[in-house]
Simulated assay, not measured.
Amino acid sequence: MIWNWQQEDWPNFHWDERKLAMSEAAFIEGAGVTIGASKHLADSDRQNLSIEILSHEAVDTSAIEGEHLDRGSVQSSIQRQLGLAADRRRATAAEAGIAEMMVDLYRHLAAPLTEETMLNWHRQLMTGRADLTDIGCYRTDTEPMQIVSGAIYDPKVHYEAPPSAQVPAEMIRFLDWFARTAPGGERPLPAVTRAGIAHLWFESIHPFEDGNGRIGRAIAEKALAQGLSIPVITGMAGTLLKHRKDYYAALERASKTLDITDWLIWFADKTIESQQRTLAQIEFILAKSQMFGRLRGKLNTRQEKALLRMFAEGPDGFKGGLSAANYMSITGAPSATATRDLTALVEMEALIRTGERKSTRYSLLKTVG
């Protein structure tokens, strides 16, 4: 198998710009809508939104690699990193490390990407790892760096990266390209195209012993943010996790060619999907603010507690909807009280009721504008 970096014209990727024009325009338009919508949030809600996005990104980008972290612990670590009040729950080294990396990314979205930035991210990610030789530096092992699956006795090689001796020179070339293609650089590229190329190129070099996927997705987020008038996190990891199998397959296909049009089209579609998910989060927070403003003075403590718990579940809400039993568990209310409270919440247009008898479920009425 001849990989992309083994081809004569490497790393001169080429693609059909016309096939990406609509996606690039949609991304810029969507960013304008997202930024505009976020301006309607209260400062506290805007801060909470940033923490939510960062914690989801941290957990989801780790889950893509098969590492499952506690979202609450990660969120607490992010709050502490930002100098905010947080609960005292203890985070594992992995949870604290990815939280530190995400906050560093968030604080320096507009800053140039440097070797020291990436080496620092790697040190943060690999905190507590005693099984690695190279932490905070590029890989040095002379054995092939391969991505494999299947049984040990019959592995399937999905990709083999350049030898470690080539990595420093490859990264110098990559970082030079990243600087030249930035807004204001010598050869600026549209945001989505630049992010897609950066992610693929970085993953093709695979410069670290571990953590390449998480750092590569952070680089893509940085590239997307730098293409906007106001740098913001797009929130790619959740979408890529949702499409994890296709994501790996798309990367594998793209690693065999320098014509990356198909990869960029796939990446652009997922970028727009991610942007729409983030906008849905903003609208959800606005709906929460509007609902509690409209119902101020009308809710009893049980109803308020239940609504806050439902909003805490996020835009997707309770899986299968809220039942009377759920309400009783959340509030401690007896059955008859729960029924009265829920009926009142429907009458106040806070909840929507579906189903009958034991199948009755309640969901939030989410209205913005």
Score class of each variant (00 low, 15 high):
318 F>M: 06
156 K>T: 15
19 K>Y: 11
86 A>E: 09
185 G>C: 03
176 D>Q: 10
227 G>A: 06
166 Q>E: 13
253 R>S: 11
197 I>C: 12
43 D>V: 13
217 R>H: 11
71 R>C: 03
95 E>A: 04
245 K>T: 15
261 T>W: 06
331 T>H: 05
156 K>E: 13
90 R>G: 09
99 A>K: 02
134 D>R: 01
317 G>T: 00
198 A>R: 00
334 P>R: 06
336 A>H: 10
7 Q>G: 04
177 W>F: 01
233 I>C: 05
130 A>H: 07
78 I>T: 06
131 D>I: 02
49 L>W: 15
162 P>R: 06
75 Q>S: 15
308 L>S: 12
127 T>F: 00
313 E>F: 05
159 Y>L: 02
108 H>L: 06
193 T>R: 13
366 K>A: 10
322 L>S: 08
162 P>Q: 07
364 L>G: 12
45 D>C: 08
150 G>A: 04
357 R>E: 14
165 A>T: 15
158 H>E: 03
283 E>Y: 05
368 V>C: 04
260 I>Q: 10
170 E>A: 09
295 L>T: 11
366 K>Y: 08
57 E>A: 05
221 E>F: 07
161 A>G: 06
295 L>D: 09
259 D>W: 05
315 P>R: 01
256 K>T: 06
259 D>S: 10
150 G>Y: 00
19 K>V: 07
123 R>T: 11
275 Q>A: 03
169 A>R: 13
324 A>T: 15
332 G>D: 08
178 F>N: 12
332 G>T: 09
198 A>T: 01
36 G>N: 03
99 A>G: 05
265 I>L: 12
274 S>Q: 03
74 V>C: 01
290 Q>G: 13
197 I>E: 10
38 S>A: 11
344 A>G: 10
143 E>Y: 00
307 L>M: 05
277 R>S: 05
98 I>W: 03
13 F>M: 01
165 A>Q: 13
279 L>V: 09
58 A>G: 07
212 N>Y: 04
206 H>S: 08
351 L>R: 08
145 M>C: 08
40 H>Q: 07
63 A>D: 13
254 A>R: 06
